[in-house]
Simulated scan of single mutants.
Amino acid sequence: MNHAAANVLIVGVGGQGTLLASKILGLAAQLSGLDVKQSEVHGMAQRGGSVVTYVRFAAKVYSPLVEKGQADMILAFEKLEALRWANYLKIGGTLIVNEQEILPMPVITGEAKYPGQIFEKLARQDIRVIPVQAVRLAGEIGELRATNVILLGVAARLLGFKQEVWQQAIEEAVPAKALPVNLGAFTRGWNLQAV
Rank of each mutant, 00 (worst) to 15 (best):
E99R: 09
V13H: 01
L95H: 00
K60T: 12
Q46W: 08
L179I: 09
G139P: 12
V129R: 00
A123H: 07
L27C: 15
W85F: 12
F161V: 02
K79Y: 03
L152R: 00
A86T: 02
F77R: 01
K68N: 08
N87A: 05
A29N: 05
I170C: 09
L80A: 01
D126I: 10
D126R: 10
A45S: 06
L192R: 05
M105T: 03
Q168S: 13
Q30Y: 14
V41M: 12
I130C: 01
V97L: 01
A86C: 04
R188M: 12
V195Y: 06
R84L: 03
N148D: 02
N7F: 04
Y114V: 00
V61F: 12
E99T: 13
Q163S: 05
E140A: 14
L75P: 07
G93Y: 00
L158V: 03
L144F: 13
A76H: 06
Q117L: 02
N98L: 08
Y62M: 11
A194H: 04
A21L: 11
D72V: 05
A185H: 09
A185L: 05
P64G: 05
L179A: 10
G48V: 08
G69D: 03
L20M: 15
L31P: 11
K177M: 10
A58W: 10
R84V: 00
A123N: 10
I24T: 03
T147I: 14
R188L: 13
E99W: 06
I130L: 08
T187V: 15
V107I: 06
